[in-house]
Design a protein around this nucleic acid. Structure first.
Lengths: 182, 182
DNA sequence: CAAGGGGTGTACAGATCTGTTTCTTTTTGA
DNA sequence: TCAAAAAGAAACAGATCTGTACACCCCTTG
């Protein structure tokens, strides 16, 4: 069984796209850093745009599966089940190459120049919102709160890029508790 | 008195940087679209990086002045004075070239490659937060709520890029009202 | 009217980027 | 064992990008 070059390419590309941005990351760098030949890269992905889409699709699937798994085991825990998503931000923001939300970064760079990327980011956000709404409903809260919890979640990821965010996360947790208490 | 080319350059650059992104916007396009000669561009700004910084600085000043002006005339109106900032998002999100928050877009693209840009975005966010805290305090609320209102504000700008955001804004307004009522 | 500063237009240098071509080497599976 | 498939290496085409050089044109001001 051969080393999975396709996965290695996706790993390297994702890391570079996330850290440095999409336009700023050249194919040559992905090629060199992954150790996979350029010919092989273009055999797996027809173009840079296709590689970008593949990276986003794989990342979206992984994030979704992770969120489902992490909340499945907290059924019936009430507000704690929702808060666990926001608590995860504590560690997320302190990772070495943290740079906000990959899908928002992608949407910002390709808003008007690549509808497929924009659509994929939109789909991911929509999934996040319905996921939040489902959790809320299952724990006995109004699912419409997802309409403000999603922006708050994304905004924390965004603000944490340029600020120490521990306090912001803490105050957001408190605010959510206050809002959801009946 | 000559036409203010410097301003024309900054106007064009800001529009393109905001709509298409920083790396995706070439100097040649700014030059062509502004109608100012390339030589003149490089006489006013030593490099593209310097132009980017100038655009961000001018935009930051304008945004700050706008926010101050719009809230000055609402002193003593209580929660309405804070909500007016979020209500403005209704129109902001529907502008033709809307693409989220310029400073977050800049921070995303230059997080690890241009510390000056990152610092400028950080300064802008910090100002927004102390501004919100000041409004809260002046209207008799806990200023610490700014710690979650800033992420919520930025998150709405961010989510609105890929979704119809009217409902999200509306639910956020309601949530803020609920949170701040004593 | 002469001089010089600001602006224009164009061409160009040099780097970099995406994607291709060509040829060789390695791996794999029947 | 051997042919086919996959991967590698490296050069290259063509586009594009930042930044510079150069020659020219006003238009003010002394």
């Amino acid at each position: 069984m051969s080393t999975p070059r396709r996965e290695r390419l996706l790993d390297t590309a994702e890391q570079l796209f996330y850290r440095e941005g999409f336009h700023a990351t050249g194919i040559d760098l992905i090629q060199a850093q992954s150790g996979v030949a350029k010919t092989t890269l273009y055999k797996h992905f027809k173009s840079k745009d296709e590689l970008i889409l593949a990276v986003l699709e794989r990342s979206s699937s992984r994030v979704k599966a992770g969120l489902e798994a992490r909340t499945d085991q907290l059924q019936g825990q009430g507000v704690a089940r929702i808060l666990t998503l926001f608590e995860e931000l504590y560690t997320l923001c302190e990772e070495p190459d943290f740079n906000g939300c990959l899908f928002n970064n992608a949407a910002a760079e390709f808003m008007y120049s690549n509808p497929a990327v924009r659509a994929l980011a939109a789909e991911h956000m929509a999934w996040m919102q319905t996921f939040l709404a489902r959790l809320l409903k299952e724990e006995g809260f109004e699912p419409e709160y997802a309409q403000m919890l999603l922006p708050l979640y994304e905004g924390l990821l965004t603000v944490a890029r340029v600020q120490e965010a521990r306090q912001a996360i803490e105050y957001s947790l408190n605010s959510i508790r206050r809002l959801l208490q009946t």
